[in-house]
């Protein structure tokens, strides 16, 4: 049996959960069970059914996220499940290792493709911070595969879904969340399909209006290079690269970023890369699909106007 952990984001199953469902339903021959913690909103179970989930177990009784208790509750619901697929989000990264120990499983994180099962169970995972891939044989009977968001194509497979509830008792949490701060209404960078990113070439934080306007026209999230977040022109959560976030959007637009190897490490798996830089020798052009050699302050207003026109 194959299962997925369906991360419950304020009642909603995000795209990364549907990717896990698509992955699981393509490797399973006997249905897929999803486990989520806390009740999802109305209609969310049907979303899972569209991607091949035959059973949803809703675990109740946990009041706040605690990796230890969540891990135990998920592991306890895995009866019969040998392979568990989940999204490699921050929550997934907190939970996958804890569940792996409890189910005595081989664990692969950062997985970017469906497994090769012609000889065992071999997954392809990103290594060396975007500079390589490895093929890893998972040898234990039980397996956990945590997939990088935006790596697996959604694949519809409409089935009917049975919903069950399970209740666990919350054993004294050893951690306590004292405050939580989510940027409301913004697309999280790791889930964004389009990212507009800018670097030191933008000169100062006061010039980010254009970057944000282009991003909002394209339905994109915004990102930045390391010096930009170090200088606090932009929040640290936008910093991409080797020591920041690794992202894999369909489209990455880099404005005024030189393309240092450490920056590329976090973005080079983007499907299409666009570079706008006034220096024709900027190393980023070597990693780009499309480019404009020019001053961002002249190019951006044209792109904004063209994006507006393209919407109409």
């Amino acid at each position: 049996m194959t299962g997925i952990y369906a991360e419950n984001s304020e009642g909603i199953f995000k795209k990364s959960v549907l990717e896990a469902a698509s992955y699981a339903s393509q490797i399973s021959t006997d249905g897929v069970t999803a486990i989520c913690i806390g009740s999802p909103n109305d209609g969310e179970a049907d979303k899972l059914a569209k991607y091949g989930i035959t059973k949803l177990i809703i675990v109740e009784g946990l009041t706040a996220f605690d990796a230890q208790n969540y891990g135990k509750a998920i592991a306890a619901s895995l009866t019969g499940i040998k392979t568990l697929i989940m999204a490699n989000t921050y929550e997934g990264k907190a939970l996958a290792p804890r569940i792996a120990v409890l189910m005595n499983a081989s664990l692969a994180t950062n997985v970017v493709a469906l497994p090769d099962t012609s000889n065992g169970f071999v997954v392809k995972r990103g290594v060396f911070s975007g500079k390589g891939f490895a093929h890893v044989q998972l040898s234990r009977d039980n397996k956990i595969v945590a997939i990088t968001p935006n790596s697996i194509e959604l694949k519809e497979n409409q089935v009917s879904i049975a919903v069950e509830k399970a209740t666990v008792s919350e054993a004294g949490n050893l951690t306590k969340i004292t405050a939580s701060n989510k940027a409301a209404g913004k697309i999280p960078l790791t889930e964004a399909e389009i990212v507009v990113s800018a670097g030191r070439g933008m000169k100062g934080p006061e010039n980010w209006g254009m970057v944000e306007e282009l991003a909002s026209l394209l339905g994109a999230a915004t990102a930045c290079s390391k010096p930009v977040s170090d200088m606090e022109w932009r929040p640290h959560s936008e910093h991409v690269g080797q020591t920041g976030i690794t992202i894999k959007p369909n489209l990455y637009i880099a404005i005024g970023i030189s393309g240092a190897i450490q920056h590329l490490a976090g973005v080079s798996s983007s499907k299409v890369i666009v570079v706008i830089n006034k220096d024709p020798e900027a190393p980023f052009f070597k990693a780009a699909d499309y480019g404009i050699v020019g001053d961002a302050f002249e190019v951006l207003p044209q792109l904004i106007a063209a994006a507006k026109a393209a919407q109409n």
């Binding site: 664990l107 500079k131 890893v136 044989q137 998972l138 699909d289 499309y290 020019g294």
Partner: peptide, 26 residues
């Protein structure tokens, strides 16, 4: 054992960049 690394690969190299004129960014 948990598993084993069978092999590695580098990302596929990009084709040459397609450039547009800065006066014609649209």
């Amino acid at each position: 054992g948990f598993g084993q690394y069978n092999g590695f690969e580098n990302p596929i190299a990009k084709q040459a960049v397609k450039l547009f004129d800065a006066q014609n960014a649209a």
